[in-house]
Nucleic acid binder design. Structure first.
Length: 425
RNA sequence: GUGGCCGUAGCUCAGUAGGUAGAGCAUCGGAUUGUGGCUCCGAAGGGCGCGGGUUCGAGUCCCGUCGGUCACCCCA
């Protein structure tokens, strides 16, 4: 037994893995479903580095000098003494690329998707990892509420396609600058009056970002918030119209959702629409995917003053929240060789089948026949092809249908044509 | 970073009042020297996370430490 272990908060994906996120066939399944949908929705892939200058994330994650600590980023200095950080989320990199490569020159909106690892230095728990994978999209260059509808429907479609169970999509509108200017002072004043009933974290947030108090899981705080002023009562005309349009679109498309006044999201750049898809199949970390609109972010980072919206969805959480489907690795043909001289001919036939798109494998253990059949069975092979001394002498092979047990002798002296035919049924 | 729980074969776990480790599954072989999924037989595999202490003697008690897990923080 080795002393080496994967780093805390990480996991491996490997054949035979027990947890959903450890199973390679489930990853393939989710990625394939997502990519199919991205094609259908006309999103193109964007791939950016897993590390960036730390200040890029600080800029997008909110104010405060302790931002690195607060957001639990993995940071390091490169040889040029630049402070770098492993990306904690996908949006900043994608937006940076949009600006850096002037994607504003393309037809707007530019619709991007990414699939890749994100990092956060925090303690592991169910559905939370230090390195996790997000499938996400960013639709940049427009503030049209129908784009919000498309993005939310895409998130929902992906979750449906991979089988996320017991899902509810929550939607809220955090308003624009005008809305915040009207609402935040009211909320802060209200919280101030109940200071004594709040948890310490919420008290300190009262000054920096009172909206975030809604995220608190503290009972006393939540009790206070029940009676708190609601942002929905303070929405500007523009925000109100926007929300109405989003709701109308979701209803027209039949996307089930609920309005949640207390949904504020952790990232400070969100404006207007925010949304979160939760699953009852998860533990405390029940958000499978979430996102929102960020109309000030692109210009803040030096780009044009255009809007954007996106979501990130955790693949590990999708897998945990999906029905644990028994996607058995299945093989078309497994070769059983009963003589050392049969191995080379078997490999040639395996190659011929593979070229035809028929998956095939053979025993590499030099084991007995029983063991080879057992392996054929375990790999889920539809057919076992037997190549022994008799077959070699005759120039044929025996094809066994593993389900029915029926056997057929097929000539292979002149190539694999007949064999291909026999196992194509 | 903080707190609760946990740490015995590859996996799931048992282990009685402390006496020097056991089961099921999986693996490999055989019953069946040309045939899988069932059954039977057998083999291999750990010294109980690590370190220290108490004791004649410790998976079994105590301390520390590391790791895992769940929750808080944060967030997918």
């Amino acid at each position: 037994m080795t002393d080496y272990r994967g780093p805390r908060g990480t996991y491996d994906v490997f054949p035979g893995g027990g947890e959903p996120q450890e199973r390679p066939e489930l990853w393939t399944f989710v990625e394939d479903r997502a990519r199919e949908l991205f094609g259908l929705y006309n999103y193109s892939e964007v791939s950016t580095p897993v590390f960036e200058e730390a200040r890029l994330f600080a800029r997008t994650a909110g104010e405060g000098s302790d931002i690195v600590v607060q957001k639990e980023m993995f940071t390091f200095l490169d040889k040029g003494e630049r402070e770098m950080a492993l990306r904690p989320e996908g949006t900043p990199g994608a937006v940076r690329a949009y600006i850096e490569h002037n994607l504003y020159r393309l037809a707007q909106p530019v619709k991007l998707f990414y699939i890749g690892p994100m990092f956060r230095q925090e303690r592991q728990q169910r559905g939370r990892y230090r390195q996790h994978t997000q499938i996400g999209v960013e639709a940049l260059g427009t503030s049209d509420p129908l784009v919000d509808v498309e993005v939310i429907s895409l998130l929902y479609a992906i979750h449906q396609a991979v089988g996320v169970k017991d899902e509810v999509v929550y939607v809220n509108n955090l308003g624009d600058m005008e809305t915040r200017q009207a609402y935040v002072p009211e909320l802060r004043a209200y919280l101030e009056r109940h200071r004594g009933e709040l948890d310490p974290d919420s008290v300190s947030r009262m000054d920096t970002n009172p909206l975030r108090t809604f995220d608190s899981k503290h009972e006393g705080t939540q009790a206070v918030l029940v009676e708190a002023p609601k942002i929905s009562d303070y929405l500007s005309e523009e925000a109100s119209v926007h929300l109405k349009a989003v709701r109308g679109g979701l209803e027209a498309l039949g996307i089930p959702y609920e309005i949640d006044d207390g949904l504020v999201r952790g990232l400070d750049y969100y404006t207007m629409t925010v949304f979160e898809a939760k699953s009852g199949a998860l533990g405390a970390q029940d958000t499978v995917g979430a996102g929102g609109r960020y109309n000030g972010l692109i210009s803040d980072l030096g780009g044009p003053d255009v809007g954007g919206i996106g979501f990130g969805s955790g693949v590990e959480r999708m897998l945990l929240a999906a029905a644990s489907q028994e996607a058995l690795a299945s093989l078309d043909v497994f070769f059983v060789t009963l003589a050392p001289e049969a191995r080379i001919p078997a490999m040639k036939l395996v190659g011929a089948l593979r070229e035809e798109g028929i998956s095939a494998d053979l025993d590499y253990g030099g084991r007995g026949m029983r063991a080879q059949f057992k392996q054929a069975d375990r790999t889920g092979a539809s057919y076992a092809v037997i190549l022994g001394e008799d077959e070699l002498a005759r120039g044929d092979c025996t094809v066994r249908d593993m389900a029915s047990g029926e056997e057929l002798v097929v000539p292979v002296a002149d190539g694999a044509k007949d064999l291909i035919w026999a196992v194509s049924g």
